[in-house]
Write a protein that binds this DNA or RNA. Sequence first.
DNA 1: AACTAGCATTTTTTT
DNA 2: AATGCTAGTT
Length: 757
Amino acid sequence: MLDPDQLLNGLNDAQRQAVATVEGPVLVLAGPGSGKTRVLTHRVAYLIGVVGVPAWHLMSVTFTNKAAKEMKERLGGLIGPAALDQLTIGTFHAICARLLRRETQALPFDDRFVIFDTDDQLRAVKQAMVDLNLDEKTYRPQSVLGAISSAKNELIRAEDFVAPSYWHEVAGRIYKRYQTVLRANNALDFDDLLLETALLLRDDESVARRYRERYGFLMVDEFQDTNTAQYAMLRSLSAAEDKDAPHNLCAVGDEDQSIYRWRGADYRNITRLRKDFPGIKVILLEQNYRSSQTILDAARAVIDVNAHRTKKALWSELGDGDKLTLFEAYDEQEEAAYIVREIQRRTAGGGRYGDCAIMYRTNAQSRVLEDAFVRAHIPYQLVGGTRFYERREVRDMLAYLRFVHNPRDEMALGRIINVPPRAIGPKALTTLAARAQAAGQSLWEALCSLAADEIPDELLPPAAHLDARGRGALVRFQQLMAEAIANRDLLPADQLLDQLLDLSGYARWLKDGTEEGQDRWENVQELRGLALDYHHLSPQEGLGAMLESVALASDTDAMGQGEGDRVTLLTLHSAKGLEYPVVFMPGLEERILPHSRSIDDPESLAEERRLFYVGLTRAMRKLYLMHVFRRTLYGSSEMAEPSRFLRDLPAGSLEQRSKSGVVTPNNRSATARSSATTWAPSRPPQTQAGASAAAAPAAASNKAQLKAGDRVRHSHFGAGVVVSSAVKDGDEEVTVAFVGGAGVKKLMQRFAKLEKV
DNA sequence: AACTAGCATTTTTTT
DNA sequence: AATGCTAGTT
């Protein structure tokens, strides 16, 4: 038993209430940095240690493995390992997968089902479209998959799919066929895990009752990110309809941080929850333990523009702190250079690299930054980007393992049958499919009977006839896989992988002497290292366990915080839940944040605003907001307009910088001062009138002011020599070779502020 | 069947 | 700019 006072000590009133209100439903609206993880862990500890609820009655659901892991770690210290073992903590998908494997007797798949990732899903859609004889141009598999996925998230099965348009009618047909493909492969996709669980709990009262009785206490983190299926599942588990049931559901969330609408999340589930549980106790966590008041005020001003939400008044005891710095750079290189300079300045003054994070909208933005960091010898860590499990070689080897584990997995088969190239092309594949069809076999069975020479060609339709070459290639493949399958219960996963790498010729194929081949080989070895974690299990269980955990894992959690003192580069999406003393947000421009794809839909725009809000509230002490005058996007350089969100920042919280120093209200132009909003570009006054900067004065003298050989100075790059200059559309474009590390740069004289020396 | 050149596309990310 | 896919060539 724990001492309640000790447990609740150090929590504020609202937090304490959230922890100790254990009867009836609770909704905790937790602003950023308000200690929600703390509340969740302490609540679990309170239930177990103070109220005396057996640990196996508790379920705590998260969205990411990382969050689940963090919760386990923090709980370990509070309740001890024994209780921790009995708790159900995990992601929605992991919990659903486990539940479904236990309940397969009433379901159209067996407990060895595999989980299809996005790549497999796409293959399955394509397969379905081939079956239905549909053209991939008119119906893009990606879009069809999107439609299927949204339907599943809305709990709509293929047979219930209602088509509002002809396109959807076709999509509905593909959906049905797609499910057939999935079932034939004994596979579920990510969305199925949720849908099947939600529908099972909704429609099978006896199963639902069993789980309701077991899980008397539910806790959900990031509730604003739930979709309809997840919501339905929680609703069933907490018996919303049953007035006499205790429904001890505790949902923690923040509608202002809902940034996953595009994958089915619906923050209105928060409103729905309040309606479904009329007596729900709503607790607001408004005290922020992370950021300075200045940062919170700025964030609040930005988010308060969004309508239909519970306004929260975030406050902090950490004082006002520094103002936000708004910086306009000429282009993304200069933007990066500014970040480099600021980081160098801060570290020279005793700051740590690890205190700084750069948060951007799109992964593509990281490139320039990485470049600049490498040149400046600043250590950094990139989160996300091309992920480990998405690498071709890793997927290929996983497909080999998956196929060995479950020879019915034809998506895996499709992936590996001709990788490395072994003369099995589309022709041989269709013939094989025809043979399977004719004999009523799976592809693998057809391969086996081909190898055993069981069915003479004469008994099969002509489309299933094989020539000697095709037959030879297919039989060789069958033999190699048969050998691996024979060993699957004898060898642990890592040795099985070694064997496959060797037998399949994949190892030899990779090691082609190129640097890329070496890279890929190392990734395969890393995968092999992962397999070592399953040595304590029998080969059979080990392989299954490894494949499941890989299917449900991502590597953001594996990457961890990274070693050493480094700057972190990450997208705004992956920044959720994290905090850094110093945060840089580059690229605050129209078409980037808000993203061009979101600009004409108010709902998407509101979500972009929330994304900006998430970024702002990651910062503890210092925020740098930056935008450029000209940005290269998709290969072409265009004028960039500052993000509309910048206009909503309160005047008093900002400090503007130009390359030459701080811009105070006094030396700012009159137009900027008199405007209702506080944004004012730091470029020269004559261009402030509008984006039509090409009409600006420098064009007046239609000849270049600098010529080759002139010595110049640039505020960032230092001294240099003009290589060439020309007037283009009224802008003087100067190519300068800088002395030192900066190299040769093309600059617009007027904005780069080159000084002649 | 394997290789290659030209063409279109371009968010965010977890599971 | 870079990537991935299709269609055409070897």
